[in-house]
Nucleic acid binder design. Structure first.
Length: 510
RNA sequence: GGCCCGUUCGUCUAUCGGUUAGGACGCAAGAUUUUCAUUCUUGAAAGAGGAGUUCGACUCUCCUACGGGCUGCCA
């Protein structure tokens, strides 16, 4: 069957979007673009208890920052609107009832407390309680109660849920685009809740199948944690009679903690000093979490790094633009095993992106940093400063330390370097160098360098001696680019000014 | 506990029965360098274990071990 590719990213607004979620969104997006299909953003807010204000906006902003474009969905509209499940309540109730009428589901009146008790009892007996074919006829369900009793309970306002009537001892045969053929016996599965009257909302399972069907989703690409519910989802498609248009499934390997065991979590980031979220997040209760953007990562570097966690192109290429990812992405090359997230590699990618950028591209990143330090500079100069230093950068946030001396004269001098250089004949030598510099008309780095080198040679100084003393005066520390990059950038007047400042302010040590 | 998925250097991974098991991050050593970096060269580093199938297995099958996920009126 050849139909239009339509995929969806369907997060739940229970908090900030985790990098595992971003990767799922990315793979969906790459798949959609690769096949000329559509990318849909659906918000699955069917858990009224766990809803977190601001999470939805965070998700949308994160995807935008990452360059993952949405064709239809919350915040974008589209032919299947609304895309927020809480706004589709009526739809689900109708389908839940349809399932009950067809004998695929039933009403259950157990209270949460009663279920807790059953679970506790089973646990005490060393077993696990399962709401399934063995118990459903003994519990307060429409399978045991008469039609009148059921109607009466509903009419008087008893809370109820609709549960799926999982068939007994049937082998469900499934196909996964990443894992291949998978089989599961329904007797090991339980009767999942599909709809709850308490908040008049469906659970994930019902909402998901109904919406994927109505929104004509062709491929469901989601995390591996969903694999155990795949048989239920297959059976739901069958129960609704939608098997002919059922989407194909692909379950992605999970992102694991850098060390230790388990899925990556927010805690890991706090503990090990790296972000697990794309953007900085502040929860309604005031808790915060760092983000890749604020930590100084370039969006495309972040995406590039994520793209390779669980997928590889089969070539040795590592640096990919979004378009290159789209052109080479394929679910065939997604790996099966979970991938440990490695913060160091994220830094390496960022450094690679930074050094590939031009002065014009760097300007927008350095400008806010300069402004925050009270420096006003033209985009051209700001970008140029960053460009000169880009090979030394790992993160955008390194920029101030790396370039401040281009804009601000040193206010103090590095002790170690001063001790080494600011002694003996060096202060006098520097004074003489200032006189030499005053006489240079063309202050370009090429010309200045030629003149100064000739002078050094004529005077019999060593290059290191002169350069390091000059560095002390102009930069104030043992860092920075070649000295002639500095002199050209700050210009003749400032160069001489800084030399005069050190001569006036710093006493020779010795 | 039950069910399901997985298992190649420390980490991300290539290999789709025959390779000196390749690359990248990180690490180490050396070279370059006016500082700090960069860059370059080199190095250490892997098929979980056991049975099969086969002329031949990292690759296929089974068992074991280990890792992960699920087991909610959460997604």
């Amino acid at each position: 069957m050849n139909r239009e590719v339509r995929v969806r990213f369907a997060p739940s607004p229970t908090g900030p979007l985790h990098i595992g979620g971003v990767r799922t969104a990315l793979y969906n997006y790459l798949f959609a673009r690769r096949h000329g299909g559509k990318m849909i953003l659906r918000i699955e807010d069917t858990d009224s208890q766990r809803f977190v204000p601001g999470a939805e906006e965070y998700i949308i902003e994160s995807l935008k920052w990452c360059g993952i474009e949405i064709d239809e969905g919350v915040g974008y509209g589209g032919p299947h609107a609304p895309y927020r499940q809480s706004e589709r309540r009526e739809i689900y109730l109708q389908y839940a009832k349809q399932l009950v009428d067809a004998g695929w589901a039933y009403y259950a009146f157990d209270t949460p407390e009663e279920l807790d008790k059953l679970r506790a009892e089973a646990e005490a007996a060393g077993k696990t309680f399962a709401y399934n074919f063995e118990v459903r006829e003994q519990l307060a369900t429409s399978l045991r109660l008469t039609k009148e009793e059921v109607e009466e309970r509903i009419a008087r306002g008893d809370q109820w849920v609709v549960r799926f009537k999982m068939p007994e001892n049937e082998v469900v045969k499934m196909d996964d685009l990443i894992r291949g053929h998978v089989e599961m016996n329904t007797s090991t599965l339980d009767d999942k809740v599909l709809y709850k009257s308490a908040d008049a909302l469906p659970t994930y399972h019902l909402a998901n199948i109904v919406d994927d069907h109505l929104m004509e989703i062709s491929h469901v690409i989601r995390g591996e944690e969903w694999l155990p519910s795949l048989p239920l989802h297959y059976l739901l498609y069958r129960a609704f009679g939608w098997t002919d248009t059922q989407p194909q499934f692909a379950h992605l390997p999970l992102l694991l903690k850098p060390t230790g065991s388990g899925k990556l979590s927010k805690r890991d980031g706090d503990k090990m000093g790296f972000p697990v979220f794309p953007l900085f997040w502040t929860s309604p209760t005031g808790e915060t979490a760092r983000g890749y953007r604020e930590d100084g990562y370039i969006a495309q570097a972040f995406i590039n790094m994520l793209s390779l966690l669980g997928w590889n192109p089969g070539t040795e290429q590592e640096i990919f633009s979004m378009q290159e990812l789209i052109d080479s992405f394929s679910l065939d090359r997604v790996s099966k095993a979970g991938a440990r997230f490695q913060p160091d590699k994220a830094k390496w990618f960022n450094a690679q992106y930074l050094r590939a950028m031009s002065a014009e591209e760097l300007a927008p990143y350095i400008q806010p940093i300069l402004k925050a330090h009270g420096v006003e500079a033209t985009d051209e100069r700001a970008g140029k400063a960053a460009e000169i230093m880009k090979e030394r950068m790992t993160l955008v946030t390194d920029m101030w330390d790396l370039t401040s001396f281009f804009f601000v004269a040193p206010t103090e001098y590095d002790e170690k370097l001063a001790k080494k250089q600011w002694k003996g004949e060096n202060p006098a030598m520097l004074k003489e160098l200032a006189e030499l510099l005053k006489g240079i008309e063309d202050f370009s780095k090429e010309n200045t360098e030629a003149v100064v080198r000739a002078w050094i040679e004529a005077k019999g100084f060593s290059l290191g001696q002169v350069m390091n003393t000059l560095r002390l005066a102009l930069v104030g520390a043992g860092k920075g680019p070649g000295m002639f990059d500095v002199t050209e950038f700050i210009g003749k007047e400032e160069t001489i000014g800084r030399i005069e400042a050190i001569l006036a302010n710093l006493k020779p040590l010795e």
